[in-house]
Write a protein that binds this DNA or RNA. Structure first.
Length: 495
DNA sequence: TCCGACACAAAAAT
DNA sequence: AATTTTTGTGTCGG
């Protein structure tokens, strides 16, 4: 019953001045884009940010599979005035041919860190279970978006209410091989033919996705550090996500100078609709982590998980701007390859343009980048195999987290097992939820399945600005014809 | 074991 | 400040 009696709730903590969200690696451009007159070779840069859902735990960017995360992305063409490039016509080089680009689209997806396996993502409507579930789909976007500024003319696509369909394996196990996922943001060029060509992509930091096992919650020592933030560490927070927003007045985004942009997230999933292929097998082992302790020391990252800059290197910048050759590591498939070109998106089974590609997926490239990353990671004494990584208990932890903008890891209490719900409430009445901030810039397109007319008055939720052509262009192909899900009567009413 | 679905309630949004 | 909506998560049942 009356659960709430003397509950003291912590007020929402203020927004942190720093962004607390997984970093992104630099954009990898997979094919050449030229100005119409071919006088310029354009470099595209994807900017992405996870607006909510993740917190840092043991130096790993973590989220709960059951909870939502949100990702916003934009892209720009280097060297072009943002005011101009939104509509810049350009040519894409494919197989030696220069093809006109009709528009650009972005999509997100996820995969196991090592890459072979795609991890499905799913999006819900605000009605959650009552509404339909879909997979993030390529969404039209114009260049010039700025995630950190709400300046008009900024085009940002936000994927809301996204969840991983499966959790990473061995979460919380200190010594077990921890599997990581990576989200990636993909930028596609839509040709006159309707084909979508993957032009660039950006991967997120390695991510840990906790499943429902009541075992993981207590391990956040790191979390405690939030003392900095002043949040009450003793309270149990739901794991609400932290969101980092940049629109904040603070202005200074995460890291001040070094990493001006966040490279994109990843794109990924491929299924048009949820196919319940869920691979439950991968997460089965998670277990019980009875332990909660301090795993701080066993972190897996050498550098601060807060910013890529801290990474050993930004490795591959080469891939970022360089010529195509550079980014093609050995099995890399260039844009010319079928793999990258998804014909029109067909939602058959999985990938968008699966039609021609064998197993498409841009997976190819991640190798270039990830590979390097992995290298550094290995230094940390980790062993990785097939996406699994073993952390050795001995890595000292740099205070990176602490010093940095830290996070607030809100842990959620899964302890329910031990405590009855009501009890918990009373006991932990303190739980607070964090702000759900989201916010993005000016023109934001929400790809969420949502239908919810988010009010635009506030910076909070994403604005439903929908690019007019968004769906049709590709819709023609049939695949993702509608942005939203067909049904969900409820939502409509809502409107 | 793990997952979908339902349910309850706290936090956010309005 | 009150009400409504969104969403974290406890739980049941498969």
């Amino acid at each position: 019953m009356g659960p709430q009696s003397p509950i003291i709730r912590v007020k929402r903590r203020e927004v942190f001045p720093y962004q607390e969200s997984p970093y992104f690696y630099p954009t990898q451009q997979l094919c050449n884009l030229f100005s119409p007159d071919q006088s310029m070779n354009y470099n595209v840069k994807i900017a992405a940010k996870i607006d909510r859902g993740f917190f840092l735990a043991s130096n790993d960017w973590t989220c709960y599979r059951r909870n939502y995360f949100q990702l916003s992305a934009s892209f720009g063409i280097q060297g072009l005035d943002s005011s101009v490039h939104s509509e810049v016509p350009c040519l894409l080089e494919r197989n030696g041919d220069l093809l006109a680009v009709r528009s650009f689209l972005v999509c997100i997806g996820a995969q196991i860190q090592n890459g072979e396996k795609v991890i499905e993502l799913v999006q819900h409507t605000p009605k959650r279970d009552k509404g339909p579930q879909i997979t993030p789909r390529p969404t039209h976007i114009r260049a010039g978006g700025d995630l950190n500024a709400n300046s008009p003319g900024s085009y940002v696509i936000t994927f809301e209410r996204v969840q991983f369909k499966t959790a990473t394996a061995n979460n919380g196990k200190r010594r077990a091989a921890q599997q990581y996922y990576q989200v990636h943001v993909d930028l596609f060029a839509e040709l006159e033919s309707g084909d979508l060509i993957l032009v660039a992509k950006s991967y997120s930091a390695p991510l840990v996705v906790r499943g429902r096992s009541p075992g993981h919650y207590a391990d956040n020592d790191e979390d405690h550090q939030d003392g900095v933030q002043g949040v009450d560490s003793r309270h149990h927070y739901r794991n609400d996500s932290v969101s980092s927003m940049s629109g904040a007045p603070l202005g200074s985004p995460v890291s001040p100078g070094e990493y001006p942009y966040y490279s994109g997230y990843a794109y990924g999933s491929s299924y048009p609709y949820q196919s319940l292929t869920s691979a439950s097998h991968m997460a089965h082992s998670q277990d019980t982590g009875y332990y909660s302790g301090n795993r701080k020391d066993s972190e897996s990252y050498p550098g601060s998980p807060l910013s890529p800059a801290a990474l050993p290197h930004v490795i591959s910048h080469a891939s970022e701007s360089a010529s195509p050759d550079m980014y093609s590591p050995a099995g890399f498939v260039g844009p010319e390859s079928p793999a990258l070109s998804m014909g029109r998106v067909s939602h058959s089974t999985g990938h968008y343009g699966s039609s021609n590609n064998s197993h498409n997926h841009y997976s190819s490239s991640y190798n270039s980048q990830q590979h390097n990353y992995d290298m550094y990671r290995d230094q940390d004494h980790e062993t990785q195999m097939a996406g699994l990584r073993i952390h050795s208990p001995s890595s000292p932890k740099p205070s990176s987290v602490a010093s940095s903008p830290s996070i607030t890891p809100r842990r959620q209490s899964f302890s329910s097992t031990l405590i009855s719900k009501s009890t918990e409430r009373s006991v932990g009445g303190l739980m607070t939820r964090k702000s759900r901030s989201i916010s993005l810039s000016g023109t934001t397109t929400t790809t969420t399945v949502s239908k919810r007319p988010i009010s635009n008055s506030r910076p909070s939720r994403t604005v439903p600005a929908t690019p007019p052509n968004e769906m049709h262009s590709r819709g023609g192909h049939g695949v993702f014809s509608k942005d939203r899900i067909p049904e969900s009567p409820m939502e409509d009413q809502h409107l």
